[in-house]
Design a protein around this nucleic acid. Structure first.
Lengths: 228, 228
DNA sequence: TCAAAAGTGTTATTACTACACCCATGG
DNA sequence: CCATGGGTGTAGTAATAACACTTTTGA
């Protein structure tokens, strides 16, 4: 009895979202090699024998895009036999989020092969990456409602209306300003700062910041974040 | 430049829960080989080059335990470098649920190396399987609240009180009988059957069945299952 | 007739929804 | 002084939580 061929290759892929001015963006790279050469694809690559999965994602993101995410979590593992036309490749997908400030830096590095696309206007994608992105989007939308994950898409200090607009944009529906504010601030996980920001036009807005410590304490005591 | 060694091995593991009489059980196998020979571990094994991940789980479950699950979903992928002391193995974990009837059959096959343990009294486990199980349990508990997944742990026809007891057992808290009933039946996804079941003692109970089709229709129309 | 589990309504409290006007600033 | 976006309260409605007695059966 000869031992069967277990040489399945393992990769990671990253669905990295950035948010700015009422638009959700996704980082894609242009493939230099076959298969799918010239097509857009998720950043990612092979896992090295001595690095864990999250480490691999972080390395690939750094190498391919220069991105350092503020939030990174495992999404799903894609293992359909035919997902790569050449060899058997199983890919562990991660979802990452980053702040407008970081996002802007990366977007402006003018790196040869990285680009940010609006999620509502994605180009054709290599492999099963469309499917992976769909799952990422769904996860983001779901998590927005039961974890304050959206705060990872905003700068450290932000006007409250940005938060509402972020929710409205990503969940693709309107929120009542007063109710949204009442509910979110009622959680007590945001701190109002003494500073204000002066936008181009209109009344200046107070800045808020996420009190992560307080959130974690409350969470341990059974608090359930919930926005719908 | 020589190509690096990408030979990471890929396995699947299954966290399979069964429920009976107010107790949640978990299927484990006793390892025949090193490492961890003689210790208890999750059913699982290598993914073959021409089968997808879910197929691999189903095959391993069949081969090692005879179990056919009623529900199976991907849980998480475990890839810490040192999780297997011998080689680099990344494992995709799945969570499975089965009905008391199926569960009883398996439990009584008296298979050499399979056993059901109460989840509140598990033996020491091989590898990082404790961690995997914890994640499975957490997923089960979470999902119980926003999907009618618990019905996969009951027989096709069941007295309503079994459902409440299942929730109370797994979530480890009491429910108010009237409120739980009102709310769950209010969803309209259970059908009351004309039959009744006569227990050992006490008043006979109506039998209910899960109207899966109706649930799926309602879900498409935006219905949100929610039990707390 | 007793023990055991099934079945059933009402009320108080809390959370949610809908809704419109004034405020502070820059141009 | 006008345009723009920030900031605020109330009332009706719906959902939730708390609570105890009656019914049906087998022994």
């Amino acid at each position: 009895m000869s031992s069967p061929d277990y040489s399945i290759k393992l990769t990671v892929d990253a669905v990295v979202f950035g948010y700015r001015e009422g638009q959700l963006f996704l980082a894609l790279i242009n493939r230099k090699y076959e298969p799918f050469r010239g097509q857009w694809a998720l950043p990612g690559g092979f896992v090295l024998p001595d690095e864990d999965l999250e480490g691999a994602v972080q390395r690939e993101l750094r190498e391919e895009t220069g991105i350092q995410t503020r939030f990174l979590e495992q999404l799903y593992t894609f293992g359909a036999v035919e997902r790569d036309p050449r060899q058997r490749i199983v890919s562990v997908a991660y979802m990452g989020l980053l702040r407008p400030s970081d996002f802007q830096i990366v977007a402006s590095t003018d790196a040869q092969d990285v680009a940010w696309f609006r999620v509502d206007a994605l180009p054709p994608l290599a492999f099963d990456h469309s499917e992976i992105i769909q799952m990422g989007l769904q996860r983001l939308r779901n998590k927005l409602t039961y974890e304050p994950i959206g705060l990872n898409l905003l700068d450290e200090k932000f006007p409250f209306s940005d938060l509402e607009r972020l929710y409205a944009t990503i969940l693709n529906r309107a929120f009542d300003r007063r109710n949204f504010r009442k509910k979110f601030l009622g959680f007590g996980i945001l701190t109002e700062l003494p500073e204000k920001i002066s936008p181009d036009k209109g009344r200046p807005a107070s800045l808020y910041t996420f009190d992560r410590e307080r959130y974690e304490t409350m969470q341990k005591e059974g608090f359930l974040f919930d926005i719908r």
